[in-house]
Every structure is written in C-alpha cells, then in structure tokens.
Nucleic acid binder design. Structure first.
Lengths: 239, 239
DNA sequence: TTTCCACTCCCCAGAAATAGTGAGGGGAAG
DNA sequence: CTTCCCCTCACTATTTCTGGGGAGTGGAAA
C-alpha cells in the first residue's frame, strides 16, 4: 500500500522556480518524492516545435525528436482530444507505427505505465505532464488513486511556469480579430463557400473578402486555409 | 484569520455528480463551505451561446445574457488571454462599456471581489470558474492565499463534469486518416499551396489531390478548408 | 488468393479564391 | 477634433482549386 508523500515542499519549490533548469530540478525532486521512474513536462508547440523538461534519458528525447515520434505517439493524440488525464493503457495503440514507437520507448528506458495530463493555455498552447513508471497494473492504479489530484495541480503549475518563461522571451503581439472577421472565418471553417458566407452574413462577397484578407493579414497567414488553421489553433474561433 | 475548511467532501460529491443540476448543487455547497457570496462555473462558447451554473441571482444571469455582457466583460477577456487565475481587480476596466457593466453587476448582487480561473478543454473549449465575494482587499487576499490551490483543482473537476455531459449528448465517430492524408492536410494547414505541398511530399500534384479528396470524404467535409478545420479541431492533425 | 486499401500518376474544363487597386460612413479614444 | 479602426461596397486579371474521368503498383488482411 502506498503511503502518501507530502508534496507541499515540492509545490513551494515549484512556485519559487525560475527558468527551465529550475523546472528540470523540480521534476527530479518530484520523481524522487513519488518514487517513480520518470516525470516529464512536454510543451507541444503549434508550429511542431517542442520543448520540455523531465527525467527521460537524453538519448530517448533525442530519438523522439529525430524520428518525429510526435506525429506517431498515440498519447499525444489521446491527450489532445481529451480533458481527462489519460492512462497510457487507455489510448489507441492499434496502429503499426504506434506499436513500433512503444517498443522503441520501452527499449529506451521508458516505463510501461504512464499517466499523462493534458494542459492547455491561451492561444491554443498545449502541453502534457506525464508520470511514468515500470510496474504492474495494480500498483499503478494505486499510484493514480493516491496522487491523481496532486498531479493535476502540479501539471497546472508546471505549465504556468513554462508560460511565464515563454512570455518573457517573446511577448506575442496577438492582434485580436474584429467580430466580423471572426464571423467570416468561422463560417469558412464550417465549409461554406465565400458566396454562402456572404449570404449568411448579409453582406456582399466583396466585403467578405476584405474581412478575410484583413484577418489573413492580422494572423500573418499565407492564405485563407492557413488563416483558419491559425485562428482555430489559437482558439480565436471555434467550430 | 481564515480557518481553512475541509473541501474533500465537496470534491467527492463533485466526483459523483451527474448532470448540470448536480453541479448546481455542488456549487451551492462549495459556496457555503468557503463562506463566500458566490461560486460560478461559466462555459463560454464562441458561437455566443453559453451555459453555466452557480449561485448568481437568476435576474443577473438573464440580464447578462440579454445585454450581451459576454462581449463586454473584461474578466472574460482577461481570462481568455491568461493561464493564471485572474483577480478582478487586476483586469482592465478602462473601457466605458466595462465600467457600465461593473456598476450594473454590483447593483445586481455581485460582490466587489472576484477570482476567476480559466479552464480550457479540447477543440478550443473554454470556461471560467469564479469565486465572488463582498469584502475588503485584505480579506480577499487571505481567501485567495488559503484556497487558491483548491479552487484550481475544483475548477478542473467542474469542467471535466461539464465536458462529460456534453460528450454524452453528442458522441462522434472518427475515422482515422492515412499517414499521407495527415501529411497533406498538415502542410495545407501550414499555408502551403498544393504545388508546394506536392513538392514537399515529393509527389505529383495530382496524387496530392487524391489524398486531399479522400481525406475530405472521410471527414465528411465540404471542401479543403472544412477538412482542415475538422481535422484540426478533432486533433487528427497538429500544426 | 483474392480483395481490399494506400499510394502513385495523368488530362481537362469550370468554379472559386487571390492580388492589385479604389471609396465612403460611423464610432471610440486620445 | 483628429486619428484610427471597423464596416460596407465595387472592378479586373490571374492563379489556384475542384470535380469528372481513368490506370497501375504493392502490401495487408480476410
């Protein structure tokens, strides 16, 4: 039976942390306190870039990036679609690429049990906070039972810190879309043609075009499709 | 000085709750346990729809909807841009509409102190969890100090429940895309033209078109833009 | 083994989106 | 009261996308 560790010092340490190196240190402390194999915070950037920190072996992290496992990893997909924390056993490993990925992960020091918490920030920011261990299903259930709540909170704080660092680095000048621009992009995202959208909004197609173009400009998008993709992934419009 | 209330029974009640009415009941219990004026969970939908539950007077809620305060409320805007919980005193009340809104809110039973926690789910889902009270800044600081962590966790669980209800109402079957289709849609979402995508994938433009069409078909999309919007919002592709 | 499905290639005509201009009215903020 | 942004409308030429055909390979599953 698990005896629950006191995590309040970890939370305090997390609160006072500065910089990614600090998060790295906290994740090591947390891993030790929880007596599991790995703790990983993984920021998945909308541009496909990614950074994170945690206790995975450096080899594996490099391999993950090199092999573009991000596109294969079913945990990422599963978390992206859900709000609940995700147990690795519950995601879809049926794809061939996914099974190859899993085998490779296990070979590189990743434990068989995982529990990943999706965290979302403004502008479509998305990250994962994962606890990983090598043990039986029963032990893992007990672990989740014991620390589930705490992990959610800690995931929240990890992401908060990561966002703070990011903000310091690049204060993004996100210029908001005007209501009409939002309308226009929303209808386009729903699959309507420009003519239909113009009709729906009771404006001329020419006017509609102006909105689309100014939205494109504001979003720094190369074309309408890009604008809609950006607006969607930044949470500026919702389908 | 605050003596911290034990919130674990509330969390358990929340865990076992079914339906919006249940959430309503939990928010009342929580308000009483915290000894504050109001607790509100507010799901904000971009389409302008919104639903929520909490302890605000029904009059005020109706007024909020009728007057379209959603578009004015600086707390909404502030939370939408941030990951941190937001104290109402810290948001931008400089706009005229915002000040009118504030005056109206205070007149309708809303307390002067507020603490709102943004929560985000898949597909750009966004909600706010708010604690509201009428008291001095000092008392409020102490309250936030005491219950800040708990409120984050509770906000998370409120949103989880709300999403569960939503899911039960509209379960959608997703048919997976082939790797090539994912590639094609991903590049298109990044703003490349068909010619550029074809070149990037080292295939002919004709072939590329076949992928796009089959992806469109699988997604039940009306056109390419729609397909990309659907794929993005279903988490099938990541930018 | 046969039957899928994923992947690759090709032509053509019509529909739709983009790029380059332009203009005027209204409202909010400084 | 001026400036800035939002909303609305218009024309033309060019590029890009869509929809309609058809055809051949290889791998995986039934």
């Amino acid at each position: 039976m698990y005896r629950k560790a006191d995590l309040s010092p970890i939370l305090e340490e997390l609160d006072a942390t500065e910089g990614l190196d600090g998060l790295q240190a906290v994740s090591i402390g947390l891993r030790d306190a929880l007596e599991i194999d790995h703790i990983v915070y993984h920021w998945v950037d909308s541009a496909g870039e990614q950074y994170g920190c945690g206790t995975y072996p450096a080899d594996w992290i490099q391999r993950y990036i090199d092999k573009e496992y991000l596109r294969v990893d079913p945990v990422i997909v599963g978390c992206f679609q859900r709000f609940h924390p995700v147990d690795w056993k519950a995601v879809d490993w049926s794809g061939k690429a996914a099974r190859v990925f899993l085998a490779d992960a296990l070979k590189n020091g990743v434990g068989n049990q995982g529990y990943s918490i999706p965290v979302r920030g403004p502008s479509g920011q998305f990250a994962l906070f994962t606890a990983n261990h090598n043990c039986s299903d029963e032990e893992w259930s007990e672990f989740k039972e014991t620390y589930g709540h705490d992990l959610i909170l800690i995931a929240h704080y990890f992401n908060r810190k990561a966002l703070d660092f990011e903000e310091n680095r690049s204060p993004q000048p996100v210029r908001a879309l005007s209501p009409r621009e939002v309308d226009a992009l929303t209808f386009l995202a729903l699959g309507y043609s420009r003519a239909q959208v113009a009709h729906s909004l009771s404006i001329s197609e020419h006017t509609l075009r102006v909105y689309i173009e100014s939205a494109r400009f504001k979003l720094g998008a190369l074309n309408t499709t890009h604008a809609i993709a950006k607006a969607l992934s930044q949470g500026l419009i919702v389908m």
